[in-house]
Amino acid sequence: MSGTTVTRADLSEAVYQEVGLSRNDSANLVETILNEMVESLTRGETVKISSFGSFSVRQKGQRIGRNPKTGEEVPILPRKVLVFRASHVLKNKINRALSKAAAKAAAPAAPTPAGATSSAPKS
């Protein structure tokens, strides 16, 4: 697949195209959305975006790590980490796109997949 990177600029461009606010306002709104999510998460809340996924904060305990280069033992302090769980809707969308791409790639080379693979993509 293409392997390009989408950034804030692309998100604000999409908002600009879709809603018709000024480019400046669109960029500010994208920023505000992210800020609100960050604030909620730093308060320790879970952020749930339906049909996209949920972000939650998990507390990690202290453990002993090791510097892989020197072999030296280093304590890893207790800390908070952010976990993202993708919703099924998002997972399905990604996989549907993936199997379509695979079907396209496979079709010219092997016109009859002959049902040999159980992973035969549904079109």
Binding site: M1, G3, T5, V6, L11, F52, A97, A101
Partner: peptide, 13 residues
């Protein structure tokens, strides 16, 4: 927009 970028196989940073 994030969803369709991921469906294309793109990264969103």
């Amino acid at each position: 927009e994030i969803t369709s970028a991921l469906a294309r196989g793109d990264r969103v940073e």
